[in-house]
Amino acid sequence: MVFLSVVNFTRSRGPDEFWRKRRIFRLAAHYIGRSRNCYSIAVRNVHRALAYATKARKLKKQDMIDLWNTRITAACEQHNITYYTLKEGLDRANIMLDRKSLSDLASWEPRTFECLAAVAKQKVEYDGFNDGTDKNRPTGTNLKLKDVMLEAWLKENKKF
Rank of each mutant, 00 (worst) to 15 (best):
W19K: 04
R20V: 13
R20G: 07
F25Y: 15
R26G: 02
R26P: 02
R26H: 11
L27I: 04
L27S: 15
L27T: 05
A28Q: 13
H30A: 14
H30I: 10
Y31W: 12
Y31K: 15
S35Y: 14
N37D: 09
N37T: 14
C38Q: 10
C38E: 14
Y39W: 13
S40Y: 12
I41E: 11
I41C: 02
V43R: 09
V43Q: 11
R44I: 15
R44K: 15
R44Q: 15
V46C: 05
H47D: 08
L50I: 08
A51W: 10
A53T: 03
K55T: 11
R57F: 05
R57Y: 07
R57H: 08
K58A: 14
K58Q: 13
L59H: 04
L59M: 07
L59P: 00
K61L: 13
K61F: 07
Q62H: 06
Q62R: 13
M64D: 03
I65V: 12
I65L: 12
I65K: 11
L67H: 10
N69V: 00
N69H: 06
T70A: 12
I72Y: 02
A75L: 06
C76F: 07
Q78C: 08
H79G: 00
N80C: 08
Y83M: 01
Y83K: 06
Y83V: 00
Y83I: 00
T85G: 00
K87R: 15
G89T: 03
G89M: 01
G89F: 01
L90S: 04
R92W: 07
A93Q: 08
N94F: 11
I95Q: 05
D98P: 00
R99E: 05
K100E: 14
K100T: 09
K100V: 01
S103M: 00
D104K: 11
S107T: 13
S107Y: 12
W108K: 12
